[in-house]
Design a protein around this nucleic acid. Sequence first.
DNA 1: AGAATTTTCTTGACTCATTCAAGAAAAGGG
DNA 2: CCCTTTTCTTGAATGAGTCAAGAAAATTCT
Lengths: 133, 133
Amino acid sequence: MLRDADLRVTRPRLAVLQAVHAHPHADTDSLIGAVRQELSQVSHQAVYDSLSALTAAGLLRRIQPTGSVARYESRVGDNHHHVVCRSCGAIGDVDCAVGEAPCLTASDDHGFTIDEAEVIYWGLCPDCSTTRS
Amino acid sequence: MLRDADLRVTRPRLAVLQAVHAHPHADTDSLIGAVRQELSQVSHQAVYDSLSALTAAGLLRRIQPTGSVARYESRVGDNHHHVVCRSCGAIGDVDCAVGEAPCLTASDDHGFTIDEAEVIYWGLCPDCSTTRS
DNA sequence: AGAATTTTCTTGACTCATTCAAGAAAAGGG
DNA sequence: CCCTTTTCTTGAATGAGTCAAGAAAATTCT
C-alpha cells in the first residue's frame, strides 16, 4: 500500500489512515475514537505517532486554524485551502485556483525561500450565519 | 488614547500595548517579560486578559502559525500577511497586494460568509536556508 | 470631591492537548 | 526462524491557556 513511503505497515497506522479518510478535518481526539472502533485497544500515543509519521511521509496533512487543536486530512498534494467558521469551527475544502504550490507570490519575501502559501478563509458557515441574524 | 474602544485605561493595558509595539510577533511569554520591565508586578493573567481585550477591540491582532504559540502584533486593519520560517519560526510581514479584506475570493465558499483571507507563506528564512546547504 | 458600581487585576488552582521515557511487542531482513 | 530496528503500551510530565474568588482600581453618579 503505502510501504512506498518507507513506513512499516502496522495495524494502528492502517486504522489511522482509514479514520482520517473517513473523517476529514477531524481532531486527534475524534480520530482516536474512530481508530478504537477498529482496534479497541490502541493507545493514544500510537495514534499521535502514526499521525506524525504519516504526516511526515506526506500521506496526511495537518492543519491547525488559530484557536483549534490539530486536525488531519488525507487530501494531500493538491495544495488546496480551507474555509473555517469563526463560530462553530466547521471546515470546508477550497480548491486552489492556481494549482501548483506555492500558489501565491509574496509581495516581499524578506529573502525567504517560500515553498507553500497556506490560505484560510475566515467567516461564518451557513448555519451560524442564519442563527445570528 | 484608546478609550475610543470603550476600554478602561489601566497600567497593564498601556504596558501591553507598548510591549507589542516594541516586539512585533512576540509570543505571550516574551510579552509578559517585556511588560514586567515596565511594571514588575503584573500577573500573567492580567497580560492574557489585556491581550484578549485589546485583540477583541481591534487594537491588536493575534496570529498563530501551526506549531507555534499565540503571537501578537500591533499592525492592524491593513490585512497584511506573513512569511514564516519552517525551521526557526521567524516571522516577517508581507503587504497584501490587494489591500482590502478579504483580499482573495474562494473558488467555492460552501455558502460561508467570508470576511477575511489569511495567508501564511511557509519557507526558510535566509539564515536557515544557508545553514542547511 | 466622595460614595457607589462596574470592570480589571492578583493569586493560585486547574484543564487538556501534546510530549517524553522506558520497557514490551511487532515488523521486516537475513 | 532469529536478530535488529521500529513501533506500541503504559504512565508520567510539560506547558500554554483558562477558571474562579476576592482585592484593587476605573468610571459613574450624587
